[in-house]
Write a protein that binds this DNA or RNA. Structure first.
Length: 196
DNA sequence: AAGCGTCACAACCGCTCGGCG
DNA sequence: TCGCCGAGCGGTTGTGACGCT
């Protein structure tokens, strides 16, 4: 069994208080990010290091854009998800001011449903039925993406084959002249940048 | 007004990866 | 080369807010 990350020591759980936020912010601004494991002790926080990191990254970090996602952001998330699958950190890396947790939540609560409503399978971005999908929003119609880059992902967690046909199949289809993504209109520079 | 169901989001959990001795 | 440890990631859960009956 794996040992818990915060064994023994009693740590707070649940929502962060204002004081905790202040302590964490002050400490990180002073000492920089990193050494999350030892940070709680140094900052005088009764929190697990993981929890501190998450709180900072997702909520306290400066330059975070909070609030609703714009249409362009939604569009980009859908495209990137078609390309990258559930690699939220990579997707978030392309959205300045957004965090992986935020993108993940937004996907699960809004975009997934939206795609389903449009008749697009959110898992593989393929049109499920011959249904008129009113893709009013610019280029939501990224068909047959099939998460090609997931092939590189050795974890292969959700290849529950039913909904994920082999990539080779779709690649040999009529759209096989597009990029590996099946997203002809995409010109995304996917070099991985440092998180902002 | 109360009860119930659903939604949205913050936070947690457990796994994997990569660096280091 | 191997094992340990910390950091990071993605899936899942908890809970408060909101809407409907």
């Amino acid at each position: 069994m794996r040992k818990p990350c915060c064994e023994k020591k009693k740590t707070n759980k649940g929502a962060w208080s204002k004081q905790e936020d202040e302590k964490l912010t002050e400490f990180v601004e002073k000492n920089g990010e990193g050494s999350w494991r030892s940070l709680p002790l140094a900052a005088g926080l009764l929190r697990c290091g993981k929890s501190c990191r998450l709180r900072w990254v997702n909520y306290l970090r400066p330059n975070l854009k909070r609030g609703n996602f714009g249409e362009d952001e939604e569009d980009l998330i859908v495209k990137l998800h078609a390309l990258l699958g559930n690699r939220w950190s990579l997707i978030a890396g392309r959205l300045p001011g957004r965090t992986d947790n935020e993108v993940k939540n937004y996907w699960n609560t809004h975009l997934r449903r939206k795609l389903i409503q449009m008749g697009v399978d959110p898992n593989n971005h393929r049109i499920g039925h011959t249904q008129n999908i009113g893709l009013s929003k610019s280029s939501f119609g990224s068909r047959k993406a099939n998460h090609p880059c997931k092939a590189a992902n050795s974890q292969g967690d959700n290849d529950s084959d039913d909904h994920q046909k082999p990539f080779t199949d779709s690649a040999s289809g009529p759209e096989s002249n597009t990029s590996c993504s099946g997203l002809p209109d995409l010109n995304l520079d996917l070099t991985i940048g440092l998180p902002s």
